[in-house]
Every structure is written in C-alpha cells, then in structure tokens.
C-alpha cells in the first residue's frame, strides 16, 4: 500500500494522490489517503484518486498539534502497514513526517521533487541538494519508505480509480502537552503561488522606484510580482514576494525574471515554471541557462518597452 497523509482536502493532496496513483500502478499497490481532520468536507473531490480514504475525524485535529496527530497516525500506519508514506512538504508534513519516521525508526527524505519506483519496489526519491545545485536520488533501506514532497511539483491528473472506499477509523484522545491559546488567520499581501504570470525582480532593476513599471505590467496581465532575496532584504518588497529556497516555490505559466542574475537559491523556486523569460544586462548570467527567452539588456528599459507594446495591443 502507498499511503498519503493529509489534514485537509486541497490542491496539494490531490497533486500527491495523482502522483501516488501513477506510482502505484507500476507495482499494483493500493493507494490510500489518511485524512485526519475535524470535519468531513470536500470528500467527493477525492473520488477516483485513491482506493481507500481512511478518515479520522476528531476535534483534536482542528489545528495541527504534534501529540494527537502523531499517536493516531502511528496507530493507523501500524494497522495498515503501507510500503510507502508520502505527505506534502508543508508545515504540516514537515512536522508530522519526521516525528512519525522517528517513531517507526525508518528513513525519511525531505522535499522531493521527483518520485519513481524501481522493479524491486524501492521508492526513488529525488530532491535538490546543496542549494539546488545538484539533484540527489535517495533510497530507503528500512520500511516504510517515507518522503515529503514539494507542493506544486506534480500535476493533477484526472481521477483513475473506479471505486474509492471510505473507511472510518476511530481516533483515540491524546492528552496534548501543547495547548492552543491563540489563533489569528494570516492575511498575505501577495498570493503569488496562484498567479499565471509572475514578474519577478532582482537588484538589476537598480532602484526601488523602477518597481512602478513592474506593478503596471503585472496589473495589465493579471500577474503577481515576485522578488529575489536581495530585493526583499533591501526592503523594496515584503517577504511575501520572495521566491526561492528560503521563500516561495512557484510554477506559473509565464515567469519573467527581470534583473535577476539567477543564484541557485532563486532558481530552486522558479525553474519549473512553464515558460521562463529572462532579462539581464549580463549575457553570462546563470538565469539564461534556465530561460526559454533571454533578452540581454537593461531590465527596466525592456519592461517599459513591453508595457508600451502591450498598451498598444490593448488599445488596438
């Protein structure tokens, strides 16, 4: 069995299940989703994406806390004995999975971007290593084999399973050593993960005032504005805009890197975008290596030209 663990039905979960179905086909594994949440909702979205949906419903799962999640997840895993366990590399997966791995005395690979299964049933877990400079493929000698997977890496496939069985498992109540005493929803300035077009800027834009043209362009094409770490550190834009290893990982249809030289840390956050356009004065800038279209020129003036031409299109 290949098990995916999640605490909600969202895009990440469906992505992961899509990939899980693909992998499971090769070894005739069953795919199961362990869903630990406080409410049962959006369940119909899961139909066809797993053979089994194991539901654990409890008030204790309303906000993630390790104690109740760990005890119950371990219980389910010991009962169903999956060969492989996957979860998203989110604050949820990145907290629960290491804890579960320690309990099960097994290996865990963080932040995978590629998964495969060999003929012996080994999960080939590939992740960027050394700041994204190399891709390392890792296998686990113990069982179960565990991995967290970066969101937005795998695509959502149409559902393939004829039947999806919903199984209820009774959670046990755990005395939590952590007590939730406050909760405030986060309001983000920029939702760049969802944009189809991202215009990202680096220090090559030269000055903060030049962001003006970037905002205008973004508005024209319904896009979002991204940034390198240097730009965020210089306070041109807030941290919500940062793309890269220590910021966000994005995969838009069009990514425009303006005045970004392309440090590996930044590339790690955008290189899977569909079409990458790079504008940089330095023709040897590493960003051109991952770009589809490269313009060797001053970023600001090129953005202005694009904006003007688009303005003409709009009026035409």
């Amino acid at each position: 069995m290949l098990m995916v663990i999640s605490n909600k039905v969202d895009r990440n979960t469906i992505e992961l299940l899509s990939k899980a179905c693909e992998l499971a086909n090769r070894k005739n594994f069953e795919v199961s989703l362990l869903l630990m949440s406080a409410i049962q909702e959006k369940l119909e979205q899961l139909k066809g994406y797993a053979d089994n949906v194991i539901l654990m419903i409890s008030k204790q799962f309303e906000v993630f806390s390790l104690d109740p999640f760990l005890v119950n997840a371990e219980m389910v895993v010991r009962k169903y004995r999956p060969e492989i366990i996957l979860s998203s590399a989110t604050t949820f997966g990145r907290t629960l999975m290491p804890a579960l791995a320690a309990k099960l005395k097994t290996g865990l690979t963080a932040d995978c971007t590629e998964l495969d299964i060999d003929e012996k049933g080994n999960l080939l877990q590939t992740r960027p290593a050394i700041g994204g400079n190399v891709m390392a493929t890792i296998v686990t000698s113990t069982r179960p084999q565990m991995a967290t997977v970066r969101p937005k890496v795998f695509q959502i496939n149409p559902p393939t399973k004829q039947k999806t069985k919903f199984i209820f498992e009774q959670p046990i109540f755990v005395a939590d050593r952590c007590e939730l005493i406050g909760y405030k929803v986060r309001e983000e300035e920029a939702k760049i993960e969802e944009a189809d077009v991202i215009i990202s800027v680096g220090k090559g834009l030269r000055r903060k005032e030049n962001l003006d043209v970037v905002y205008k362009l973004a508005k024209f094409v319904n896009g979002a504005v991204g940034a390198t770490r240097a730009v965020v550190e210089a306070k041109w834009l807030s941290f919500d805009h940062q793309i890269g290893l220590s910021g966000k990982v994005v995969k838009p249809k069009i990514y425009i890197a303006a005045g970004i030289s392309g440090a590996v840390q930044h590339l790690a956050g955008m290189q899977t975008s569909q079409t990458i356009i790079a504008i940089n004065k330095d023709r040897y800038a590493p960003i051109f290596k991952v770009a589809d279209i490269g313009i060797v020129a001053d970023a600001y003036s090129i953005l202005q030209q694009i904006l003007e031409a688009l303005g003409d299109e709009k009026n035409a």
């Binding site: 097994t106 290996g107 865990l108 690979t109 080939l124 877990q125 960027p128 290593a129 994204g132 400079n133 190399v134 891709m135 390392a136 493929t137 890792i138 296998v139 686990t140 000698s141 113990t142 590339l267 290189q271 990458i276 290596k289 991952v290 770009a291 589809d292």
Partner: peptide
Amino acid sequence: PTKVIRVCNTKLTR
C-alpha cells in the same frame, strides 16, 4: 536508512 544512490548536476538548461 536513507542512502544517496545517484547525484546528477541539475542540467536544467533550457
């Protein structure tokens, strides 16, 4: 329990 079996340079070159 985990072992790196293969390392390849990220030749993401498009």
